[in-house]
């Protein structure tokens, strides 16, 4: 005997209506079309197969647990593969041409020499903290760039020379090095950005510097602050923009255990590789200017000290600031220490 209470009845109707709505909404277009298709064209499963490439349909299921295990076919892989071929090709050319251009520049124009005589008095340019953080970033960057390039181009350049077995040993080493050095680089990069951001804020005189390219071609003297506009461009575009981009995409690829889907990792992989190759191209220019391209620049990175003449010729506004804050005699001891260090080195 059924004793149905009106509220119970209403509730059951409500639930039924809700369920029907839920089902009809959740049913994919493909399922609806398939049901219709079976009326007119039995045996034709085209609407189902059109849905095969989707995975977000809640009615596409599997017993196997794992991210995207219910996706039967993913199309993104082919897009990723084709994109990868393009950037490998052009990236390879960029990374071949840039060093050649730098070599050409060095051959035609030579290094930027000091015009005046060194005074023998040194100015402290970088503190030990600044040098340490820069060296950490520099060393980890080199390791990452080298291992990354080997993983991308080694198949074409190194494998024919070394053979599969030896190259695979090198590649395993590179992959693990890349995965473990990467987070160290990202952390050191953050510290370096915080360390140098204040002196890299754009100033009005940077426009003049950029317009004349710092007198790099004309040899003209263009004054600048602690960092010139070229260094600032490298800081904002290279270190900050590209550095943060490669770090974030790197973390996505380095830690695949957060259930990120393949589409995310494919995109991260493309962005990571393109940004990294642009980063390396800019880095080559930065290294050139900081070593053989500018007389006395490497000393600043190594010991933190530069000669007064160097400071005046390369970063006049900064030198004026420093001399105003601390006149030459007071700087003596510090400067001598820097000079002594380079002699020992």
């Amino acid at each position: 005997m059924m004793r149905s209470h009106p509220t119970q009845w209403l509730l059951s109707v409500f639930v039924t209506v809700l369920l029907c709505c839920g089902v009809s909404h959740a049913q994919s277009d493909g399922a609806r079309q398939q049901i219709q298709r079976q009326q007119t064209q039995p045996g034709n499963n085209a609407p189902v197969w059109r849905e095969v490439r989707g995975g977000d349909n809640p009615y596409q299921t599997t017993q196997v647990r794992g991210p995207e295990s219910a996706v039967l076919i993913q199309s993104g892989g082919e897009t990723w593969r084709q994109t990868r071929r393009v950037f490998t090709y052009y990236g390879g050319w960029v990374l071949t041409i840039v060093p050649l251009l730098i070599a050409l520049f060095y051959w035609r124009k030579g290094a930027i020499r000091l015009k005046g005589k060194p005074t023998g008095r040194s100015v402290q340019r970088f503190s030990s903290w600044q040098r340490m953080v820069h060296w950490t970033v520099a060393i980890t960057f080199c390791l990452l760039a080298l291992s990354g390039l080997i993983m991308l181009f080694g198949k074409y350049i190194m494998m024919p020379v070394f053979g599969r077995t030896l190259f695979s040993w090198i590649a395993v080493l590179c992959k693990n090095l890349h995965n473990f050095v990467g987070p160290v680089f990202a952390f050191a990069l953050m510290l370096m950005i915080l360390t140098f951001i204040r002196d890299n804020l754009p100033k009005a005189h940077d426009i003049k510097w950029l317009a004349k390219l710092g007198g790099m071609l004309s040899g003209e003297h263009v004054p600048s602050g602690r960092f010139n506009a070229g260094e600032k461009v490298w800081f904002w575009i290279g270190v900050l923009l590209l550095g943060v981009v490669v770090s974030i995409t790197g973390f996505i690829l380095d830690f695949p255990n957060f259930a990120q889907v393949r589409a995310t990792m494919q995109l991260a992989s493309v962005v990571h590789a393109v940004a990294a190759m642009a980063f390396i191209a800019l880095f080559l220019g930065h290294v050139y200017m900081g070593t053989i391209g500018t007389e006395g620049a490497y000393r600043a990175m190594r010991t933190g000290a530069v000669d007064e003449t160097w400071a005046k010729e390369h970063h006049e506004y900064w030198f004026d600031e420093v001399s105003r804050a601390q006149p030459a005699p007071a700087r003596g001891a510090q400067g001598d220490f820097g000079a002594a260090a380079i002699k020992q080195g």
């Binding site: 049913q27 994919s28 493909g30 399922a31 609806r32 398939q34 049901i35 079976q38 609407p47 189902v48 849905e51 095969v52 349909n57 009615y59 596409q60 299921t61 599997t62 017993q63 196997v64 295990s69 219910a70 996706v71 039967l72």
Partner: peptide, 12 residues
């Protein structure tokens, strides 16, 4: 793995 399309949708 076995993937089921339109799981539970009769006819599809």
């Amino acid at each position: 793995r076995v993937v089921t399309l339109n799981d539970g949708v009769a006819g599809a």
